[in-house]
């Protein structure tokens, strides 16, 4: 008897239709990229018992366990139960595995719990975002990175969150060594200049990366208590028009970011092209089609931005567009309706 499986269902359950007839791959997501090490044992057991003994570390901080016969999916889901519980992934059916796979794993760089540059606890924020948006079948990519080094490459995601710490200067601790000015010039955006032997911060240019705080030998620079972020929008990879996400709001708070992402789900529900292949249309392309003004109306609905927040307007994206010109591609200056 031939194999009869509804592929749409298994995909939502976070299994993949693979090249190999009869074999699937189980996908395990680790929101925020951090987990208890002892959970790895379950991954290994699934790979050894049902898979081909290998695990692929996914690009989005997950595990993909290939070589699993389709009929073993229920058993794999049972074995995944402690992993889902251990990681704290919401799921409606005990031992039933994942409820959705559309919204991709929420990624995070090591963040401030490990990295000296991290401006906030990226994993913790990623987990709060997970709580706010998972499970969901819509294709969303949300990525967290600790600072403007952007090791997590948030500018390639729909929503990129970068930590910002507003630096504060206590001039009485400044000994005019120039370390902060040099550091900002060489490693960041050159937002510091010197006046009367004291650094002056160009607030417009400052990224809140914290390099000045790290450089100061005397604790004259410190970080503001309030954790604020930069939110970037609609970067993407893929075939049609890959591009980097652009700055949307600077110095925005956590609550506003979560609300904006949630609002975007409403926007996508309203405007998604239901005839798109597989019913999937990425947010950025929907915004390209509908217009950024309409998007912003939805995104900022009922959002009370914190007083520090600075919204960038207008928003322009560029990126690669493929054409039949020599070379086959070009970088348009603006490809957005604004």
């Amino acid at each position: 008897m031939g194999m009869d499986i509804e592929t749409g269902k298994l995909k939502k359950n976070a299994f993949r239709v693979t090249k190999e007839r009869g074999k699937t791959a189980a996908r395990v997501r680790v929101p925020g990229g951090r987990m208890q090490a002892d959970l790895l044992e379950h991954i290994q057991k699934i790979a050894d018992t049902y898979g081909n003994g290998t695990v692929h570390l996914t690009i989005r901080q997950g595990f993909e366990i290939p070589g699993i016969p389709y009929e073993k999916m229920p058993e794999v889901n049972r074995m995944l139960e402690p992993v889902l519980q251990g990681i704290g992934t919401k799921h409606s059916t005990p031992e039933g595995g994942y409820d959705a796979s559309g919204t991709r794993n929420i990624m995070a760089c090591a963040g401030s719990s490990i990295c000296p540059y991290g401006c906030y606890d990226t994993t913790a924020f990623a987990r709060r975002m997970e709580e706010a948006i998972y499970p969901n079948d819509l294709h969303f990519k949300v990525v967290f990175t600790g600072c403007h080094n952007d090791c997590a490459k948030v500018r390639m995601a729909d929503f990129g969150i970068m930590g910002m710490n507003e630096p504060r200067l206590d001039p009485n601790r400044c000994i005019s060594c120039g370390a902060c000015v040099k550091r900002c010039e060489k490693k960041s955006v050159g937002a510091l200049s010197v006046h009367n032997f004291t650094p002056v911060r160009n607030e417009q240019r400052c990224l809140g990366c914290g390099e000045c705080v790290l450089a100061c030998p005397n604790g004259a620079w410190t970080r503001s208590d309030k954790k604020l972020y930069k939110l970037t929008l609609f970067g993407r990879t893929g075939k049609r028009n890959p591009r980097l996400g652009v700055d949307f709001i600077k110095w925005v708070d956590e609550e506003s970011i979560i609300k904006i992402v949630q609002n975007t789900y409403d926007f996508v529900h309203e405007y998604i092209d239901r005839d798109a292949p597989g019913g999937k249309e990425h947010i950025g392309y929907i915004v390209d089609r509908v217009g950024v003004h309409e998007y912003l109306k939805w995104a900022l609905k009922d959002v009370t931005l914190n007083p520090e927040a600075e919204v960038y307007q207008p928003l322009y994206w560029t990126g690669v567009t493929y054409t039949d010109q020599p070379g086959g591609y070009h970088y348009p200056k603006v490809n957005m309706k604004n």
Partner: peptide
């Protein structure tokens, strides 16, 4: 103790 007065995020300083 200067809470969050340290160099790294969420670290303190004593002075």
């Amino acid at each position: 103790l200067f809470v969050r007065g340290g160099r790294f995020t969420d670290t303190d300083m004593i002075r």
